[in-house]
Amino acid sequence: MILYTYHIFRVSAVLFGLGVFGMRVRRNAISMLLSLELMINAAALNLVAAAAFTGTYISGFSMAVFVIVIAAAEAAVALAIFIALFKSRRSIDVDEAAEMKG
């Protein structure tokens, strides 16, 4: 078995694509959040791969940690918003929450 950096990049490409697809196809806010997590994960995987295999991108490791931290923060805020949204309209369907429509 072989493993090159571009293999990892392609794995993450597929993962990211799945995330985009999920984001597009679901309407429930939490489902969209889950897809978003997949996309973030794909990005972190790329950073780790680049950092691990090359001598030049060591910072990738710390970037990956920051990505994970930011993802946690983002999830917390997103869920807080969802819960607030749910409290006010008993639904978290994003299509119904379209007051921002111009």
Binding site: R24, D95, A97, A98, E99, M100, K101, G102
Partner: peptide, 9 residues
């Protein structure tokens, strides 16, 4: 204005 559809997707 029409661009601001309010649809997240």
């Amino acid at each position: 204005r029409r661009v601001q559809t309010g649809v997240l997707q």
